[in-house]
Design a protein around this nucleic acid. Structure first.
Lengths: 231, 231
DNA sequence: CGATTCGTTGAAATAGATCAATCCTTGTGG
DNA sequence: CCACAAGGATTGATCTATTTCAACGAATCG
């Protein structure tokens, strides 16, 4: 860990309120490392050695079984991933790879658990983060079980619009990954975009222009309890 | 809360190590109530007022949107549900109804958060529970994204066999709910059972006899990282 | 510039949903 | 105790959504 990185790390929400002493203990054995794109950071099934926190860039969480693979989530700064495995001292349930060049803070699992047990501010922050992640997965699960693939895409576009504050949204990563994340094949995603054309969805590469929000929303029927990340 | 219930409650894993004083504080405003089957306990979208803990019976968690409904999970003793909503002081993301006659301990959200902040043993237990629930949903999500419906059924049957320690398993609830839980229609579940006949799956009402475990397992390809509840 | 991967499109196959009819089980009230 | 109603479960027929396979154009990268 380079000393000049420390102040920046200290500022992260996740360390708000933690004592200097405990923060130092956490940092002593930690690494802040920059990885190129497409670097596999962890593999499912392995013991959870480090808590990973994305500081910059973007990390893809994915899972495999029996030759199939699916993107489970994309992690953006500043969020941890696989916190649950660390806390329970278990194996990872998902693999992770950088999607673009990324800076990742890696804190040894033992340190996390130690400080977790003695620093209320830190444990509180971790729990809030974990609870938030939990709710995120529940929403994703509802999304998958209660909607068709075209509906999932429509709602995703509305979400991007919300986040990017523009009617022309930019897909944040490859359509291939987006498809997998939405639980469909790339071919099917392509067709889903076509299906949405009558609702004012125009595709040019990774730029999507939404010309009829009302129609799109009527079709998508977004729900606070699935699509609102804040709730 | 009836005084004679207290000792039994005190024994629950979830309260292990908590101070008497804090335990009393939790119990003071709590209810231990018996509900008949098919009673709606909570509805998604409402503020999380109480932490619910299933002490006896069985509770179904389900979600709805836009006229569709899906069973998200079945909760058995002794487990809490919607802990994350309580901790984050948010609205419920799922609804809950008793599947059979059930005893449910209901602890006011404010008390939970208060004691959570001052009793390390309690907060630790809650966090472990939450982390476990999180991993449970991840496994369910992988199950849904990486497997066909017949594979999900096959693996579910193997899981029941494991839990019930018998080659003749009893489905723990209606096939209708099982179907929804597995992400399919009742008709499709019926056909999935037929598809599994060549692998030694014989259906008689809610009793399923597995006569060729090896063949079934070869077909199902169970994975520790999806099917093992303990990991 | 050539190789590779991504994205799109069409055709065909499959998985899964829906609709309808029927059977079976279960619980209720006479 | 029986008759009947109601809901659960199964089956067949059909329809729809989605995947797969194959081909090809477009973008990307060394």
């Amino acid at each position: 860990m380079r000393p000049d990185d420390l102040p920046q790390i200290r500022e992260l929400n996740i360390f708000e309120g933690i004592s200097d002493e405990n923060f130092d203990e956490l940092m002593r054995a930690s690494f802040l490392q920059t990885f190129p794109a497409q670097m596999e950071l962890i593999e499912e099934g392995e013991p959870a050695d480090f808590l990973h926190i994305v500081v910059e860039g973007c990390v893809e969480l994915f899972a495999s079984t029996n030759g199939r693979e699916s993107t489970m989530a994309m992690v953006y700064p500043v969020s941890s991933f696989i916190l649950a495995a660390i806390l329970r001292d278990a194996v990872y349930l998902m693999s992770a790879r950088t999607n673009k060049k990324s800076r990742v803070l890696m804190i040894p699992a033992v340190s996390v658990r130690e400080v977790f047990d003695k620093d209320p501010a830190f444990s509180k922050a971790m729990v809030m983060e974990l609870a938030n992640c939990y709710r995120g997965v529940i929403k994703e699960h509802k999304n998958l079980k209660l909607r068709t693939s075209v509906e999932r895409l429509a709602n995703r576009l509305l979400r991007y619009r919300q986040k990017q504050q523009s009617d022309q949204v930019t897909l944040p990563y490859d359509k291939k990954i987006l498809a997998s994340n939405l639980g469909m094949t790339p071919e099917n995603l392509s067709r889903a975009f076509n299906t949405l054309k009558p609702y004012g969805v125009k595709v040019e590469g990774n730029k999507i222009t939404l010309t009829d929000i009302e129609a799109l929303a009527t079709f998508a029927k977004p729900s606070k309890l699935i699509d609102d990340l804040a709730i």
